[in-house]
């Protein structure tokens, strides 16, 4: 009896807690009572553990507010299975358009197909889908971004020097594309990649991997990291070693931009995550109104330097 009572109390408490948290976070709270369910747009985001995607989400939310649309945001926590479940939930809620920021281009295929089968239009953000039909793909061009970083490093080093490449999580498309663009750019120039190691897009790993590389390589002129988290980790390692090495990151997160402004980092390639999110919602609105949109919508990249 006592146990049952305690359990009930805990359940009520937790439910209350969630109700309290959920209310301000989701402007879509009156979803069930909303008769105009057709205007609802779903956003399935790969993860909210990464500031980049948080900014993307915020861009989408801001746009939705501006257009007076109902936006439901679901977090896939980098898990394709969770992603599938999220899409299914949105289908059940019969949203008008689904915006997907896939965890993985291959794994998302079935989720896209599921939406296709219910005739719900899908727009992919940042990462594409390798299967299923999407009305549009909105992303910045990672290959172009990698190239931009490569060209910047060539210019700064005046065409000659030793470079370290910190790779993202092995097998992800961002890591592949950024690496590809970078390596295409430096080909033919007098730049030598002396170490190429993964640090899993993680700041702590960026630090320790860079420390180890600093031990191994007596001469390094520049570091290109596939994202800013790793770049900032590498920066700490370089600072501690007292050596002077140019660091170029990718994503232009708040911390990285600050580091560029203070002169600690040389540059970061700015994707515009907020713009990806906002363009997503904007195009979703167009789809709802029946307007036609471009199949591929590139989002500008820019190099942030001091």
């Amino acid at each position: 009896m006592k146990k049952a009572l305690i359990l009930t109390m805990v359940v009520i408490l937790v439910a209350g807690l969630f109700a309290g948290c959920a209310a301000p976070a989701a402007p879509a709270a009156p979803a069930e009572t909303n008769q105009e369910g057709a205007k609802k747009v779903g956003l399935v985001i790969s993860t909210l553990n990464n500031p980049f995607f948080v900014t993307l989400k915020e861009g989408a939310e801001a746009k939705a507010k501006e257009l007076g649309m109902d936006l439901v945001v679901l977090d896939s926590q980098n898990d394709p299975a969770k992603e599938m479940a999220n899409v299914e939930d949105l289908i059940t809620k019969s949203v008008a358009v689904i915006l997907i920021n896939p965890t993985d281009s291959d794994a998302v295929g079935n989720a896209v197909k599921a939406a296709n089968s219910k005739n719900i239009p899908v727009i992919t953000l940042d990462r594409g889908a390798n299967a299923g039909d999407v009305v549009a793909h909105i992303a910045s061009d990672n290959v172009a971004g990698g190239k931009m970083a490569g060209e910047f490093i060539i210019k700064q080093l005046e065409g000659k020097g030793k470079v370290v490449e910190l790779e993202g999580i092995a097998g992800t498309s961002a890591a592949r594309d950024r690496g590809k663009g970078f390596n295409e750019a430096i080909q033919g120039a007098g730049i030598e990649v002396v170490a190429k190691q993964t640090a899993d897009f993680d700041r702590t790993k960026g630090l320790s991997v860079m420390e180890n590389i600093l031990q191994a390589q007596p001469e390094i002129n520049a570091v290109f990291a596939h994202n800013d988290e790793m770049a900032l980790g590498a920066l700490q390692a370089i600072k501690a070693s007292g050596r002077s090495i140019m660091v170029v990151g990718f994503d232009a997160t708040d911390d990285a931009v600050k580091a560029v402004e203070s002169g600690e980092m040389a540059a970061t390639v700015a994707q515009q995550p907020a713009m990806i999110g906002s363009l997503g919602v904007e195009n979703a609105a167009k789809v709802i109104k029946g307007e036609s949109i471009e199949k591929s919508i590139p989002v500008d990249l820019k190099l942030v330097t001091k």
């Binding site: 190691q197 993964t198 320790s208 180890n212 031990q215």
Partner: peptide
């Protein structure tokens, strides 16, 4: 082990 794999520039797939 972590240090050695980095020092010897072992590909991330093998790490």
């Amino acid at each position: 082990l972590n240090n050695a794999l980095n020092l010897m520039d072992v590909s991330s797939y093998y790490q």
